[in-house]
């Protein structure tokens, strides 16, 4: 139990650091959100002092010392008050984020779990059959596929399966004219729309799991207890699965949490290509429109999600391997 509390303390500390980083980033940069918004307005004509004051008030440009701003910011974050988006004016940022988050969470979460299971199995096989085609094919294929930029895989699938073959929808998360609801029809429609984005993430992230599992498995195969098990005449499959793979999977689990950050980043690009209404597409929209309040909130929510996922993996790791609880 003490182990859980230590991890929880660390999580809170990391969360605080992430929130603070989010606060410092715009303030370390040249220019200010209000200036950017005013610059956009100025493209349409001269900005009157009254408009200027209105924009600064709208965007909540804080006055007072840095410390006061920080306290106010912490208060805003604690109450999920991220201000008003000015791309989707006058919708509050929190509502926009809440609408986009489930799409990304389900997409990335499910695909990551599938990729982890498949990749680990292939990695075990590759390490055990080292030097045969069962090793070469997944290793070389995985290396090559993990070098694919996410958005490139996405563009190719979109072009060939979406536009040329016409098998899959080319954008969105559900058909036009349908509204999100809990019905079998809508669910099937959503799955149909998710196939191409999901396949993209799967293709690109699978290689990492294969290679990671293969290398830890090879290290484990060199351990004395594996040699001992072999010398005892146990069946090769028993040695591979029950002895080596079982111990090799643990180090691979820690990279699960860290790789998640990369997969989330990749999914942002994938969502941009497929116009998938998740966090990534919203972030893209925010960035291209210089919608700083929305961008800040999205970055924060993405970071917090990844931190929480890591925390869960840490706890799982502690349950599976008692040695790490110290």
């Amino acid at each position: 139990m003490r182990f859980v509390f230590t991890k929880l303390g660390l999580l809170l500390l990391t969360l605080w650091a992430a929130v603070t980083l989010n606060f410092l980033l715009p303030r370390l940069m040249p220019g200010s959100p209000a200036d950017a918004a005013l610059a956009k307005l100025a493209q349409n004509g001269p900005v009157s002092p009254a408009t200027r004051a209105a924009v600064e008030a709208q965007l909540g440009v804080p006055t007072g010392s840095m410390f006061d701003q920080y306290l106010q910011y912490l208060g805003n974050v604690a109450t999920f008050d991220f201000g008003v988006s000015y791309t989707f004016f006058p919708q509050p940022v929190a509502g926009l984020v809440a609408a986009a988050l489930p799409w990304t969470l389900v997409l990335v979460g499910l695909v990551t779990i599938i990729a982890f299971i498949f990749g680990t199995l292939l990695g075990v096989l590759a390490a055990w059959k080292r030097g045969t085609w069962l090793d070469t094919l997944p290793t070389v294929g995985g290396t090559f596929a993990s070098a694919f930029p996410y958005f490139w895989t996405a563009l190719l699938l979109l072009f060939f399966l979406g536009y040329v073959a016409g098998w899959f929808p080319t954008s969105g998360a559900y058909g036009r004219g349908t509204t999100p609801e809990f019905s079998v029809e809508f669910l099937l429609d959503a799955i149909y729309h998710a196939i191409l984005p999901a396949t993209t993430i799967l293709i690109t992230s699978l290689g990492g799991w294969i290679l990671g599992m293969r290398s830890t498995m090879i290290n484990t195969l060199g351990d004395d207890y594996v040699t001992f098990a072999e010398a005892n005449g146990l069946r090769p499959r028993t040695v591979a699965i029950r002895y080596a793979a079982r111990n090799a999977i643990l180090p691979n689990l820690t990279s699960f949490g860290l790789a998640l950050g990369g997969v989330v980043g990749g999914s942002l690009l994938v969502e941009r290509v497929f116009a998938y209404p998740g966090v990534g597409y919203l972030l893209y929209t925010a960035v291209t429109n210089q919608d700083f309040p929305l961008m800040q909130a999205l970055f924060l929510i993405i970071t917090i999600s990844v931190l929480l996922a890591n925390f869960i993996v840490d706890i799982l790791y502690g349950i599976l391997d008692p040695r790490t609880r110290r």
Binding site: L13, L21, M29, G261, G262, V287, T303, N310
Partner: peptide
């Protein structure tokens, strides 16, 4: 340790996107 772990868990691409968006 804390700083490195922080940089490891913060998703890199979103951070890059945000910084790049500010730097214009």
């Amino acid at each position: 340790n804390f700083i490195v772990n922080l940089f490891l868990v913060i998703p890199a691409l979103p951070l890059m996107i945000v910084i790049a968006a500010y730097l214009q």
